[in-house]
Simulated scan of single mutants.
Amino acid sequence: MRKVTVPVDMSSEQKTILGILSKRQLTYLAVAGVLIYFYGPFFYRMAPTFYLGVAFFVLSALPTAALTIMLAFVRKEKMGMYFDRYLLTKMGHKNEVGLWRKGTHAKEWMVKQK
């Protein structure tokens, strides 16, 4: 049987937007942009001067921008997945941990005593 090497990485996300962003990353950027658009002017208007208002706006947008960059672009190379998928996997891990047994009948110590 002949083996053919595929010149494209089939396991990574497809960068469909301008060849640099995936749809998932664009969604994160759009949601963060909308959030900053809605709460940013509130912090800008809190300041008495223009420069202080710009500083408040930038400082209020930094946590949202940092979280967005971390979820959309940071890749856990050891696990082979982006950070958002890694967090979802870690949160779902608690539901997958259980008491496993071999056989069809439960042992006495496994059955709750009333």
Rank of each mutant, 00 (worst) to 15 (best):
S22C: 09
T104Y: 08
A72M: 10
F56L: 05
M46T: 11
T64V: 13
Y86F: 14
L26M: 15
D9H: 13
L21E: 00
T89E: 09
A106G: 05
V6Y: 03
K102F: 09
G40L: 00
L35G: 00
G53R: 04
S12D: 07
W100I: 10
P48M: 04
H93T: 09
K107F: 06
T104A: 15
G92W: 00
S22K: 07
T5P: 01
A106E: 14
G19S: 08
G103N: 08
N95G: 14
F38A: 11
F57K: 02
F43Q: 05
K94G: 08
M10R: 04
L88G: 05
Y86H: 07
F43V: 11
W109V: 01
V74F: 14
F42S: 12
L71E: 08
V4W: 02
E96S: 06
L88T: 04
V54F: 04
P48C: 01
N95P: 01
A55K: 15
V31T: 11
K3S: 07
T5K: 01
S60F: 07
A47Q: 12
T68A: 11
T16V: 09
L35H: 02
L88P: 01
G103E: 13
A66F: 15
M1A: 10
A55C: 12
V58P: 01
V6R: 00
V31H: 10
P48T: 13
Q14R: 08
A61T: 12
F83W: 10
S11R: 09
G92T: 03
F50A: 04
L18P: 01
K112H: 04
R75M: 12
T27A: 15
L87T: 07
V31P: 09
L29G: 01
V74Y: 13
F50S: 03
N95I: 03
T27N: 06
L52W: 10
M70R: 03
G33S: 03
T68Q: 12
S60D: 08
Q113W: 00
F56C: 07
Q25N: 02
K90Q: 11
F50R: 06
V34P: 05
Y86M: 11
N95E: 11
V111G: 03
F56P: 00
S22T: 15
R45Q: 15
S60A: 14
L87E: 03
F43Y: 11
R101T: 12
L71F: 12
K3G: 01
Q14L: 05
F56Q: 04
Q113N: 00
A72C: 05
P7M: 11
P63N: 09
F38V: 12
M70H: 13
R45I: 08
K102H: 07
R85G: 03
T64H: 02
A55W: 09
G92K: 05
R75E: 14
K94D: 07
I36L: 04
